[in-house]
Design a protein around this nucleic acid. Sequence first.
DNA 1: CCGATCATGTAACGGGTTACATGATTTC
DNA 2: GAAATCATGTAACCCGTTACATGATCGG
Lengths: 190, 190
Amino acid sequence: MSLKYMILGCLTEVPIHGYDMLRVIFRDFAEQGPEVNSGQLYTLLNRLEAEGLVEREVVQQDKAPNRKLITITPQGREEFYQWLRSDAAEREYIRYDFFHRYGFLYKVNHFNKMSREERLDKVDQQLAQMEEKLANLESAWTDMSQRGKDPYRILILEYGIEAQKTKIQWLKRLREAVSSAAALDSDESQ
Amino acid sequence: MSLKYMILGCLTEVPIHGYDMLRVIFRDFAEQGPEVNSGQLYTLLNRLEAEGLVEREVVQQDKAPNRKLITITPQGREEFYQWLRSDAAEREYIRYDFFHRYGFLYKVNHFNKMSREERLDKVDQQLAQMEEKLANLESAWTDMSQRGKDPYRILILEYGIEAQKTKIQWLKRLREAVSSAAALDSDESQ
DNA sequence: CCGATCATGTAACGGGTTACATGATTTC
DNA sequence: GAAATCATGTAACCCGTTACATGATCGG
């Protein structure tokens, strides 16, 4: 379970309440803010509390709905640091992981079953999407470096940007291949 | 469900039996052959058969365990082509997907909680793993192009190789940052 | 007053993993 | 005769998603 350690890691830095965590953690994974997956968060939080890794305290707010401030317990902190130092989650057994979960690539795998127009269409759409995403990442970078965030976190974002650029460059090559080659119109495989 | 379409896609090209599919499909995702996730395959296959998308026929083999040859039905083929042409599975809503599921990156996010030695250690390990993986991908490429496979499939592999190189380059930059900078030893975050 | 946002939750489902069971055949 | 590989399967579990429910407060 990876979210568990995201939560604990987040809490090692500052106590926070659930809704804010949703915005902080999930905002970055799904494009827009909440209502994204409150489901998982609150149920996990229940479990973590039962396990004694976090504590929740109701904070009365006048003129606003009550919040529950979540703090990490010493055991929680302990477990997070142990995980952090272990080599858990660092190994990737998956050889073709770039392929895994990237539906578009899987469809390229079956391009020989599509017409040239269909291929071009798909590639162009993908390119547009990926370029938009790159722009997003880049503006996030500007934002982050202006706010003087932890340099490691900026570096992480820079990895994301590089990876995205690599993807785009490859998509352009793919586009070339689709648009130019009759030789690529092979039908058999294997 | 993505595996469903991997199976159907595989079957549009050639009838195959379950165990072979395990080797073909899963070999590429988990490093070594079966016994990897036979669980999912056979249960899914049951469902696909019940839905009339595939058919199974027992093939008696003397001097070997019986196999069940799986063929795709016209409905199965139909459904696969529809999926292929739709834009299903092509959109990525996840902004920081490069971060998602890449445990190592998440730990870099918490590098400020580790000593310089621990950081270097982690980075070096990761580098070694990623370089090994690159070598694997490259030998797979040699293999594939010698066997004259579908050019699109070779292109896909080339994307994997490029992505892996990007990762490695970044890891080297990260290593630099860790080994050289005292300035990076910031403690606060936010 | 209505809709948006803040804030917390439950229930059902679904895909995927792990672990286990079975049994044959080939190789050492 | 033991271990490895071929071949098919079941059951339990876990993580995550979807969909829904509740209720308060704020802006128009």
